[in-house]
């Protein structure tokens, strides 16, 4: 007879099994993805941080000693957003629609809620790995000076999750990838440029500035920069973290719903 106790819809065991599976899959491809996810932020650091930065004499309004120290930490959070955004679009639709591995997992005791949660967590882990490697580059260049910098990869992971959760929830409602290009061009790319990674958003017109500050990526940039340069206060740290967690929570709740609906049809 089947046990009469009602099974729970979300368990640590289920998440662990899902993540084990992803780790085994990742073993085959991790080299190429790790190298590209490390080179990508280094390109920004070198060209904009050092290249463009060499033309900037007065950094007093930035609060850092040089421009690279301003851009380097900002790139940590914005690249986290771009990486998480990318993983939440095509690869997510692929896993749900074409590969069939998610359907296969749902023929096991795994629940759709565990699958949605594990899917988002796995993106967070990928971001965490990339951010940790990039942080070591910032340490090498003498940009990461504060001991608090050790927490910056977590800030990057939270930033990534704040996009991975709602975007994965959205992707689970899609049949085609036609909206993904526009999301990249008029969603993620402008957020990248207006994130405060390259200049303080206080330079922007008021309405644009407030729009920037409402985006989770601005909070990720501020949090990462504050940790890496050691300038963050308690109020800022808690506030930015809480705002990112709010996006993650709401996005995750939507993702559980949309993954469940999609994978039960």
């Amino acid at each position: 007879m089947i046990s009469t106790t009602r099974p729970r819809w979300l368990t640590i065991t289920g998440l662990r099994h899902f993540l084990e599976h992803q780790f085994i899959r990742y073993r085959a491809t991790w080299r190429s993805t790790v190298i590209s996810s490390l080179l990508f932020p280094i390109f920004f650091l070198v060209t904009i941080g050092f290249g463009l930065g060499s033309q900037i004499d007065d950094t007093s309004s930035l609060g850092t000693t040089d421009y690279a120290s301003f851009v380097g930490p900002g790139v940590l959070a914005t690249v986290a957003m771009l990486q998480a955004g990318g993983l939440s679009l095509w690869p997510t639709l692929g896993a749900i629609k074409w590969e069939g591995t998610y359907q296969a997992a749902l023929a096991t005791p795994l629940t759709a809620a565990e699958l949605a949660t594990g899917h988002i967590l796995w993106i967070g882990i990928r971001v965490l790995v990339g951010a940790s490697l990039y942080l070591s580059v910032l340490v090498m260049f003498g940009i990461a000076t504060s001991p608090l910098a050790a927490l910056a990869p977590l800030a990057a992971a939270l930033t990534g999750l704040a996009f991975a959760a709602p975007l994965s929830a959205f992707t689970a409602t899609r049949e085609k990838d036609s909206s993904f290009g526009p999301i990249n061009r008029v969603g993620l790319t402008p957020m990248f440029l207006f994130s405060g990674a390259f200049f303080p958003v206080s330079q922007l017109p008021d309405t644009v500035e407030w729009f920037s500050r409402a985006m989770p990526v601005w909070h990720g940039v501020a949090l990462s920069r504050g940790l890496i340069t050691g300038t963050i206060g308690w109020f800022g740290a808690v506030g930015h973290t809480a705002y990112l967690l709010l996006w993650i929570l709401v996005g995750w709740l939507f993702a559980v719903r949309t993954f469940t609906a999609r994978l039960s049809s």
């Binding site: 089947i2 590969e99 005791p109």
Partner: peptide
């Protein structure tokens, strides 16, 4: 209500192979 418990004791071979 008991999907998880049922799946624990059932095998499913889908129409399309969904191997990894």
């Amino acid at each position: 209500l008991d999907g998880r418990n049922i799946r624990q004791r059932m095998g499913v071979v889908p129409q399309e192979d969904n191997l990894d």
